[in-house]
């Protein structure tokens, strides 16, 4: 037991270092924001890095000094002096309060600035073109994406032209949900009777996993979709195809959407045995406003 106790700091530090390396190596394989594919996620990664570096100022002393203290003042083989009544040092006190405080001031300033920069309600700063507006309605357990300008809608797939940012208006026709596309950027809640907003953009064409992250029942884990950033022409033909071949947005479609089920169940209900994507040839324009009640949060 003695021997084990002596070696104790090493396993911590090694295993942590290993975990950190592995984490960054593996992240690329899953849909991680560390592997950013849009300006918002990229800004988040750089902010993350900055915080980690600054925090090292207060964290490293703990990691470095604790093993040193234990070694130097270990009972039975101590090398340092023994001052049982020693209990105050102005210098240490100033450092202990002052350094973390300064770090927090710096971090706080950055926080203030970044929070405003990355406000999900603001258009993506880097974007040069006007955004594509998509009205998103959360159902149990699928998302409906309505394209009011294009007059189409889809489930399981959120297509947009890669050269334009997207502006999502969100609401929910059921319990609270939260929409996140990690590689593009932030998440925001969708709540019945309310409208929230989320602005995102992609660096270029690509397919990104998106999902609901707020537990909402047994189909929760299946409530995912693919965000597809398309070459501009591809998006036009995607819209055209949805218009031409998409299903009508009729009572049957509505009932199937409102029914509790995953996107697979939805396809079954609409008579399409396989695949995960449903396109609608028409966009039910008033639906979003009706569910959202046009009550804004924030502001």
């Amino acid at each position: 037991m003695r021997a084990a106790a002596l070696r104790w700091p090493l396993p911590f530090e090694t295993s942590m270092a290993c975990a950190a390396c592995l984490a960054s190596a593996q992240a690329a394989q899953a849909d991680s924001f560390l592997d950013a594919a849009g300006p918002v996620a990229a800004a988040q990664v750089s902010h993350l890095r900055l915080i980690l570096i600054l925090m090292a100022i207060v964290v490293v002393p703990v990691f470095a000094a604790t093993p040193w203290l234990v070694r130097r003042y270990r009972y039975g083989r101590a090398r340092g002096d023994y001052r049982p009544e020693w209990k105050f040092s102005l210098l240490f006190e100033v450092l202990a309060w002052g350094v973390p405080f300064l770090v927090v001031i710096v971090l706080g300033t950055i926080l203030w600035e970044r929070t405003h920069q990355l406000d999900p309600y603001l258009p993506v700063a880097e974007a040069k073109a006007p955004p594509v507006v998509i009205d998103v309605i959360g159902y149990d357990w699928k998302w409906l994406f309505i394209y009011p300008e294009q007059g189409v809608a889809s489930v399981g797939e959120m297509a947009f032209p890669a050269d334009r940012p997207v502006k999502l208006n969100l609401t929910s026709d059921t319990v609270m949900q939260s929409l996140l596309i990690p590689r593009l950027g932030s998440q925001i809640y969708a709540m019945k009777g309310m409208r929230t907003q989320l602005n995102l953009a992609a660096d270029g064409p690509g397919r990104f996993e998106g999902r609901n992250t707020q537990y909402n029942g047994k189909g929760f884990s299946a409530q995912s979709f693919t965000a597809v950033a398309m070459r501009p022409g591809d998006f036009e033909s995607w819209v055209a195809q949805a218009r031409a071949q998409g299903l009508p947005f009729d009572e049957k479609a509505r009932a199937a959407l409102e029914h509790k089920g995953t996107k697979l169940d939805l396809r079954h209900a609409l008579g399409m045995p396989d695949g995960t994507v449903v396109h609608f040839a028409a966009a039910p324009t008033a639906l979003f406003d009706k569910i959202a009640g046009m009550k804004e949060t924030g502001e």
């Binding site: 203290l69 009972y75 023994y82 973390p100």
Partner: peptide, 21 residues
Amino acid sequence: VPTGVKIYDWMLTMYRGRVRI
């Protein structure tokens, strides 16, 4: 900040002590 102070103060409690693990 106060949480950090606590951590440092506990470390300083070991300083000049006789630490028994």
